[in-house]
Simulated assay, not measured.
Amino acid sequence: MLGNLEFVDLYGEKGSFWHQTFLYCEPLTQRSEQHEWKIHPHRHQHITQIFVLTEGGVDVQFDDEHHRITAPALLYIPDGVMHGFDWQSHSQGTVLSVASPMLRQVEQNIGESVEALAGAFVLAVKDIYLCPLQAICGAIQQEANASSMHQGSMLQALLQQLLILMHRMQPARTEEGSLSKPERKLRQFQHLIRLHFTTQHKVAWYAAKIGVSQAHLNQICQQYFQSNALAMIHNVLISEAKRYLIFSDTAVAGIAERLGFNEPGYFNKFFKRHTELSPAAYRRQSQG
């Protein structure tokens, strides 16, 4: 268990190497072997990770979800998502750790966010994409380990190739083509929630930020998620509260404060209204 749910750098190692243009690439075996192929649940602040698994397999945990994955596959893990791994011994692949601000900049160049593919996700890699993926990862690793002129620009260009390939690997995305205007507004709303949910802004604040009326935002949410905008904000708050309760030993009052609740009592009522359990009861049930 992570005391106070600390954000960590790579695989539980504390440090301060994070930088807005940080991009690091290494073989999967480099750290997994050191940890006997098991990486305990943790999460990163400001760092998004992309795993390209070419041999072997893994039991992976994303927050409270568990998946069994076999190679070849690609795993995308945004910052803030709790994740842990139980790798098959001698698995092979590449791990890319990229500063999320750098990722956002590259996404702007493409004109589409990887987050449109929805949180942490896994893509099966078809044979047609495996060699290009390996080639791009190899080029990123070589460039990241060099001290060449315009290195930052070259890394961004290679990362852009990787993200484009990831979009092409999504069958549904290929068939749907570009996002409609309501879908783009919905994705903007989801992104803003992830950035500002602890501030507990009203729905009208989010609607103004993305340039729609509150009624229209609710209509979009209902159309695509059968839920209103406030419920979507609350779902993110509840998910984050569950993370703290499951993976940390932070007191309930401390969790309430971190999530923007002025009164622990109100947080308790809010949590119970959505889960039918008090925070303390949910923690006991999850850890029992």
Rank of each mutant, 00 (worst) to 15 (best):
L2K: 06
F7A: 13
D9C: 07
L10E: 06
L10F: 10
Y11E: 01
K14E: 06
K14G: 01
H19M: 01
F22M: 14
L23I: 15
Y24N: 07
L28W: 02
T29M: 04
W37P: 02
K38F: 12
I39L: 15
I39G: 06
H40I: 10
H40M: 12
Q45T: 06
Q45H: 11
Q49N: 12
F51I: 15
V52Q: 04
V60K: 00
V60C: 11
E65A: 09
H66K: 09
H67E: 11
I69F: 04
T70H: 12
A73R: 09
V81Q: 07
M82Q: 10
G84P: 07
F85W: 11
F85D: 07
D86T: 10
W87T: 00
V98E: 05
A99T: 08
S100W: 11
P101N: 07
L103A: 14
R104Q: 13
V106Q: 11
S113H: 13
V114H: 04
A116G: 14
A120K: 00
L123Y: 02
V125Y: 00
D127W: 00
D127M: 04
Y129P: 00
C131T: 11
P132Y: 05
A135M: 09
C137S: 09
C137R: 00
A139S: 10
S147R: 03
M149T: 06
S153H: 06
Q160G: 09
L163D: 03
L165N: 03
P171T: 08
A172R: 10
R173E: 10
G177E: 13
R184E: 15
L186M: 15
Q188I: 05
Q188P: 04
Q190P: 02
R194A: 08
F197E: 03
T199K: 13
T199D: 11
T199S: 09
Q200Y: 05
Y206A: 09
A207L: 15
K209V: 03
K209P: 00
I210Q: 10
G211T: 12
I220Y: 05
Q222E: 11
Y224P: 05
A229K: 03
L230F: 06
I233E: 01
N235F: 01
S239T: 08
E240Q: 13
R243F: 01
Y244P: 03
D249T: 13
A251H: 12
I255T: 11
A256W: 02
A256F: 01
G260L: 08
F267N: 02
N268F: 00
K269V: 13
K269T: 12
F271W: 01
E276S: 14
